[in-house]
Amino acid sequence: MTTMIHVENVAKTFTLHNQGGVRLPVFDAVNFSVAAGEALVLAGASGAGKSSLLRILYGNYRPTSGHIHITHAGRAIDIVAAVPRTVLDIRRRTLGFVSQFLRVIPRVSALDIVRDPVLARGMSPEQATARAQAMLARLNLPERLWNLAPATFSGGEQQRVNIARSFVDPSPIMLIDEPTASLDATNRDVVVELIAEARQNGAAIVGIFHDEAVRSQVATRYLDITDFRKAA
């Protein structure tokens, strides 16, 4: 299978300049690869740096050293060294991030939030709308909410909009951070299905799942972050 992510010697240390320059080492010498069709679940105790690693893969945190090669449009690009516009292009076309919370933008309806990424990839408005509606329905979001801005939605409703946006047109690489935390059992199962479908369609998945059941349903492989904790 195609290698989609190749992590090479990645280390991360936070330096807090305004707190006496204290240095917080997170991990060191992280090496792994993820292929298309794989679902790698990050394991390790809370605070081990799972979220930090996921954010580094997304180009959101900058590693202290190391390289992360992302296969983007048939080429491996080091996202650590890439210029901002390349990172943005990688995110737009290759790299999706499913966060724990929806970042609510005032005045944008749930349907538009979900439709947006599909439109950005060039689908016709009619098709995009149909797909967005289908996805919202699948996640059991009441139809009366579709045309409202999610600012007033409950946490679970907001999270379903967030997941719908991420899975309406899954990216070749999906980075998933605790997507099911605020969901009930029914919707949790839908999310597991969505992840499985994306993976079967060739997506490379890297995720963090708090829920043991979800974790075992999703994972094809585990990676324990604690192994990379600095000796210090």
């Binding site: 305004n18 954010r55 900058r62 901002p84």
Partner: peptide, 14 residues
């Protein structure tokens, strides 16, 4: 300088 989310989420300069 950098990507907006990089700079805001993982600021390096004091």
């Amino acid at each position: 300088q950098g990507l907006t989310d990089q700079v805001l989420d993982d600021p390096h300069h004091a």
